[in-house]
């Protein structure tokens, strides 16, 4: 369980987070979306103890990240946005050092390494130097490393950024599997379809404030069921409809070309934040 109460973060005169409230249930897969600079990574950095909060409270399974930092950190694993593996060490050595940092005994480290490499389907890369791995494999190693100490909460900060569609979907399957095994997952992503596919609930963050929080289905339903996109003086205009009949009636009056489609989470995001997810 993750609880954020009145979370604020200032960087000199800039307020990066404004009174963020969140209550994420045990075992939930929660997506945190927002445009660049919205405060997603700042939130994760505060929750993992990398950045100090200005005011408010962060509880990870009842442990306060400021007051009881060691216990809170043991509860969580982090997969950061940038690859932060030791390039000159092997996959197994990277996992082993992580286990040492979390006070795991030697035997447990060895068995967990084998178990996780098998889980991620990278057993054959155990003794490969990280610098020789592809981007997708490095991401899988990072997820394996974050799971090494069996955290109850996993923070994924843009885990599929820069990966091709095929590998991204493979990572999605792994994330789903981790959640099904009982881990609470906090995910930030730029790929809105990723959140739509994976998350049980989604929060939209804009300029450091949460502007919407609900299930993807409810957020989309608020927009309607059907959407028509049409080009109006070099701007893409979208109109939403509750029924297909209403959309068809609208289409009959149109002279220019248009596209009829189902409403998606991006529509909700654009309407609520007025910004594209970049």
């Amino acid at each position: 369980m993750i609880i954020l109460k009145n979370l604020n973060k200032h960087y000199k005169s800039i307020q990066a987070l404004k009174n963020v409230h969140l209550h994420i249930n045990r075992g939930e897969l929660f997506a945190y979306l927002g445009p660049n600079g919205a405060g997603k990574t700042t939130t994760i950095r505060i929750m993992t103890g990398l950045t100090k909060l200005s005011s408010g409270t962060v509880l990870l399974n009842r442990f306060d990240i400021e007051q009881d930092q060691v216990a809170a950190k043991k509860e969580s694993g982090l997969v950061p946005q940038s690859i932060n593996l030791d390039q000159e060490l092997t996959v197994a050595e990277n996992l082993d050092i992580h286990g040492m940092l979390y006070q795991m005994p030697v035997k447990a480290r060895r068995s967990k390494t084998d178990e996780l490499l098998d889980y991620m389907d990278i057993t054959d890369r155990k003794k490969t130097l990280v610098k020789h791995l592809s981007g997708g494999l490095k991401r899988r190693v990072m997820i394996a490393r974050a799971l090494m100490h069996s955290p109850k909460i996993l923070f994924l900060d843009e885990p599929t950024v820069g990966l091709d569609a095929n590998i991204r979907r493979r990572i999605w399957a792994i994330v789903k599997k981790i959640q099904q095994d009982g881990t609470t997952i906090f995910l930030t992503t730029h790929y809105i379809e990723e959140a739509e596919f994976l998350a049980q609930r989604v929060a939209f963050l804009n300029n450091g404030e949460i502007v919407a929080l609900d299930t993807p289905k409810n957020l989309m339903q608020k927009m309607g069921t059907w959407a028509i996109d049409r080009l109006e003086e070099s701007n893409m205009e979208t109109t939403y409809f509750q029924t297909r009949e209403a959309a068809k009636k609208f289409m009959a009056d149109q002279k220019q070309s248009f596209t009829l489609r189902h409403v998606n989470l991006e529509d909700a995001f654009l309407t609520l934040t007025g910004k594209k997810v970049k």
């Binding site: 216990a71 950190k73 982090l78 950061p80 690859i83 030791d86 992580h98 979390y102």
Partner: peptide, 12 residues
């Protein structure tokens, strides 16, 4: 390599 973050996030 941003490995310092890994140490900062660890309970040490």
């Amino acid at each position: 390599w941003h490995i310092f973050e890994e140490f900062q996030a660890a309970p040490i």
